[in-house]
Design a protein around this nucleic acid. Structure first.
Lengths: 153, 153
DNA sequence: CGCCTTAGTTCAGATTATGGACGGACCATC
DNA sequence: GATGGTCCGTCCATAATCTGAACTAAGGCG
């Protein structure tokens, strides 16, 4: 299988990863959630080549994850903002960050602490079941082919 | 920044992605959660070169995400099983799959349906706050540097 | 013994990623 | 009006990575 064929697989994970599964894309998105919006800022924070930043931002814009919005004229300058589709990636980023906090934080503790504005407490993300509201364990989930299935996956 | 330097960044997202941020690694893990355990099975399902499968499996074993367990002697054959650390990636996979279901399922509906054994209902994953139990919105989260921080990130 | 299974390894060639220089539009200052 | 600065990219030669296909290895089967 080639990378470009991924998007055609009857698998939501494959389709998602065709967009965000790239080496740097998720780090760009992490920065988006931290409020970074400009090309130069992404480049400075990540320290990777401008080519890659440009290419990834373009892909994310094409996919509707980010929107390119002018923030000034003369010269026209754009910034990149999360769309609704992009904001929907928040659980993905939170889950990744939480996993890193749990297994790679070391003695110093986690680099970032998250506070829930609504309740005012520091927290970590918990994945729950939309039906019963209980926390989800990996073993509690059973999968079966859905209407969009061709093969399991 | 180089890919190998990622793991040293004071950022849980970067550290996690140094392990799982690879193009194919998350697809391998998806298959792990679907019960795939053997080299040949990964290769057949993903259709990518054996070299990459071998390399990724080795990395995941080195990182303690998968364990290589003998399932027979003479000849010794191994299978790859999720460790506790690997099972902890379940929310990441679920979040990615859910995002794909939501934005890429098309008219046919999602390829896979998830049922919660505990309550018996089909569900989708909801990320909630460990403190108050409410669903988390991207805008409801505030971050600040934690004890392990050197710079924000 | 020859052929099958499972799990890799090796290697040349194709594909991608990389950093660093460059381009273009505009502003500010001298 | 020349020089330098900001911001956002593009271009290109080189370096790293991925690919498929063949190969090794260790044993089973008939």
């Amino acid at each position: 299988m080639k990378w470009e064929e991924l998007a055609k697989e009857p698998c939501s994970a494959a389709r998602s990863l065709a967009v965000i599964g790239d080496r740097w894309t998720l780090l760009i998105l992490r920065d988006c959630f931290l409020g970074v919006r400009r090309f130069e800022a992404f480049q400075a924070r990540l320290g990777i080549s401008r080519t890659i930043i440009a290419e990834r931002l373009k892909l994310l814009v094409d996919e509707g994850v980010l929107a390119k919005v002018a923030y000034q004229d003369r010269p026209v300058r754009h910034e990149y903002r999360l769309t609704e589709k992009g904001l929907a990636l928040h659980p993905v980023i939170m889950a990744i960050v939480h996993w890193g906090d749990r297994f790679y934080a070391g003695e110093a503790g986690p680099p970032l602490i998250h506070r829930h504005r609504t309740c005012g407490h520091d927290f970590h993300p918990v994945m729950t079941c939309s039906a019963c509201g209980e926390a989800l364990g990996a073993r509690d989930v059973e999968t079966r082919p859905g209407s969009g299935a061709r093969t399991a996956g």
